[in-house]
Amino acid sequence: MRPLEGPHIFNQFLYMQKNLFIALTGGLFVLATVLMSQTKKPAAKPGGSGGLQASITRGKQVYLEQCLACHQVDGLGVQGMNPPLAKTKFVLGDKKALAKIVLTGMQGVEIDGEEYHGVMAPHPDLTDQQIADVLTYVRNSFGNKATAVTIGEVKAVRAANPQPAQ
């Protein structure tokens, strides 16, 4: 093995410096992004108090009580009856449309060529917070990853869809 020559070592040193620099700036950039995104989060007020994680935790409880019986433990629904909640445009897409489904109910939908006929009852009895939480939970479960649903968003959808008298 040839002993390392001066210029070679110098080059390596330079190379390491360069790497270090890239790592440093890269690291700072990532840190900054993370910090920025974290400082941005509270402004979005996912589900009200406590941030995203708290909303998801509360939302899971609502899911267990209100949704699980039909959409199942794994969120994949029931063939021909109750639609899956994993990676569908209904869950990941327009949040207003999603909140409207919870508030006013639904029957009959086609997802990926599968028809689902199950009747979903409207849930106007849930509070805006509960709906925001459960939708935030659903949008961040079963392989989903999407932004939180806020109380304000639910409130707006509720105002736009007044409940008919029973």
């Binding site: 270090l20 790592a23 440093l24 890269g26 690291g27 700072l28 990532v30 840190l31 993370v34």
Partner: peptide
């Protein structure tokens, strides 16, 4: 973050 720290 940890990765950046380690490199540093």
């Amino acid at each position: 973050c940890i990765m950046a720290g380690l490199v540093l």
